[in-house]
Amino acid sequence: MTLALSDIHLRDPFVLPVPAEGKYYLYGTIGETCWKGKPRGFDVYVSTDLTAWEGPHPAFRPDPDFWSDFNYWAPEVHEWQGRYYMFATFKADGRCRGTQTLVADSPLGPFRPLGDGPLTPRDWECLDGTFYVDRHGEPWMVFCHEWVQVQDGEICAVRLSRELDRPVSEPVLLFRASEAPWAEGIRGGANYVTDGPFLYRAGTGELLLLWSSFSDGGYTIGCARQAEGDINGPWVQDAEPLYKRDGGHGMVFCTLQGELRLAIHTPNDSPNERPIFIPVEERDGHLSAFPKEEVM
């Protein structure tokens, strides 16, 4: 079946371009089971032009003994050493939410879990792990330590094994949500959300970290930057957000024609959220989004 983006009910969209195939692979949180219900796993959609999509194809279906039974959230897929690795968030009753890696030989899957559970600390409520390779070729995962546990949500990083199946360092705190001048607290103002981190290296060498929280425009994407390109920081928050029209959990990808796009879901209310792709321009280490030219 061929679908338009507006037909695809996903949150937290992630696009993997595969130039050798001339294809794009789209993953995300399945909207119907995001907040309640038994998730079936994760699906993937395939396109050659970002407009017409085929799917859904089953990318991951859990075995009966898989440890998690709800909150299947925010799958990302990255190529690493010739294989494809999914970073996805899971939870179960009595266990903290966390991000685990899964692996497959194809972007279509089937993906199978790696390791013995989440890469995030077992006593931390965490979500939205994303993959990053530093200038020394070392793999990292950047993730959110949730506001539901710490009130002022945190963005943290942990170095991974070469197999991406376990952490090999203690978590490093990169920054807290309240450090962004545009961020607003929720539930009386005392709680600050961190969602959806994504790393992008600018042409200037600066390392940019996109992340989502809430502002006076609703769900919002901001940007933190590290001038030397060092994952450990210090990180400086841009004063103005990248996108503040009640859309978020963004990632940047390059089209097969060499153009930048920002993938987000908007609006942030269920069941109306849908993925969209917004043209992006990089200039002097800064990203600018052009939402009037949204690709639906």
Rank of each mutant, 00 (worst) to 15 (best):
E259Q: 12
I155D: 01
E240S: 13
P121M: 02
S212C: 12
A289L: 09
P39D: 03
L210S: 14
P234Q: 00
S213T: 14
E163R: 14
N71R: 07
T255K: 04
T194A: 09
V252A: 05
G205I: 09
L26C: 06
R261Q: 13
S212E: 14
T120Q: 02
T48R: 13
H57W: 03
L10G: 02
D12A: 04
G203N: 08
A263I: 09
E154W: 00
R97W: 07
I30G: 02
R159Q: 12
L26W: 03
D238W: 10
T2R: 12
Q81K: 14
C144T: 04
L160D: 03
Y219F: 14
A59K: 00
A224F: 10
R122K: 15
G203F: 02
D134E: 03
W140E: 08
H9V: 02
W124G: 11
E154V: 02
E79R: 12
G28A: 07
P197F: 01
Y45S: 01
M141Q: 11
R166V: 06
A104E: 07
L114H: 06
E32V: 06
A289I: 09
L210G: 13
R283M: 12
A177W: 06
T194N: 12
P267Q: 07
T101E: 03
R162C: 07
P291E: 10
D43W: 07
P39E: 04
D116L: 12
K38L: 13
G233V: 03
A92Y: 03
A4V: 01
A202T: 08
P271R: 05
F111Y: 14
T48S: 15
L3E: 02
L3V: 02
P107F: 01
P171V: 09
K292F: 12
T255Y: 10
D195R: 05
A59W: 00
Y45K: 01
L10M: 14
R176V: 07
R40V: 10
E146T: 09
W235A: 04
K36W: 11
G185P: 01
S212A: 15
P234L: 04
D216I: 10
Q149P: 06
V168L: 05
